[in-house]
Amino acid sequence: MARRWTNDLTWNDVTPKSHWLNRRQIIAGALGAAGAASIGGPLAAQVDNDNLQPNTFEEITTYNNFYEFGTSKEDPARYAGQLTTQPWSIQVDGMVDNPGDYALADLIDRLDVEERIYRFRCVEAWSMVIPWNGIELKDILERVGVQEGAKYVAFETLVRPSEMPGVRRAVLDWPYREGLRLDEAMHPLTIMATGIYGETIPNQNGAPIRLVVPWKYGFKSIKSIVRITLTDEEPPTSWNMANGREYGFYSNVNPNVDHPRWSQASERVIGGGLFAQRQPTLMFNGYENEVASLYEGMDLSEFY
């Protein structure tokens, strides 16, 4: 039952709410003192997963890609408030022992909710650090019983045109679909998030429950999930369907494999202001030690 992966941080290390609500001022003050060490530091790709500085609640909740609410970064914060997230049920089907429509509360009842401070790297070459609260996906999958022979997990996002203005246009082939290989889904880093900064996850961030796979580009971390399917075939995924040359099924963060539109070698860190320096992108978004073994023997430029 969870607790398979821990970082050394506890809630004592998370920025107190009174601080993150106006971290701007604190940053402004601290820039002079700490700046040289942490912000203007050398470009050496140093992996330190225990001292990540989370973005502010405001940054995390006003800059989102959630095309069901519109294609601009501000649209989700503007329109997602109207989404009804209670009641919420999730259809679990495919190669599982206990298929059915689960009320969300039943599906996650008594499972451990942990804090996970993860890097979040968008395929558009920007990044944040987000303090999630979530449940290991493995716990949920074990609850519904994965049958032998299942190799993949497929997910679907809600489609509700009355509350999601973005789905009235065919920007993508709705519903939004994502998928993971079963071993990726069972990895202890993979969580289903229900909160941010200890608060209920805001609608624009994928309420009431979303996937978070920190070593993959953000679009893999599908939001507002209404269906989970276990299957023995690689499931179709939305961005791959829209443009297979640009978005692969795996989409692991990899500074050495370019996206046709963006170099993935570095990223813009959200929240640093107009003149923020790019920082180098880390292999598997800094989780190489934890996940590289999943892809042993695979050519990552072929399976991008």
């Binding site: 006003t62 920007w126 813009r268 107009l274």
Partner: peptide, 18 residues
């Protein structure tokens, strides 16, 4: 627009916005 970007009036990603 540069003034807005510098003073925080363009949200959390001012460079892209500009």
């Amino acid at each position: 627009i540069y003034y807005e970007g510098i003073t925080g009036g363009l949200g959390v990603d001012p460079a892209k916005k500009i």
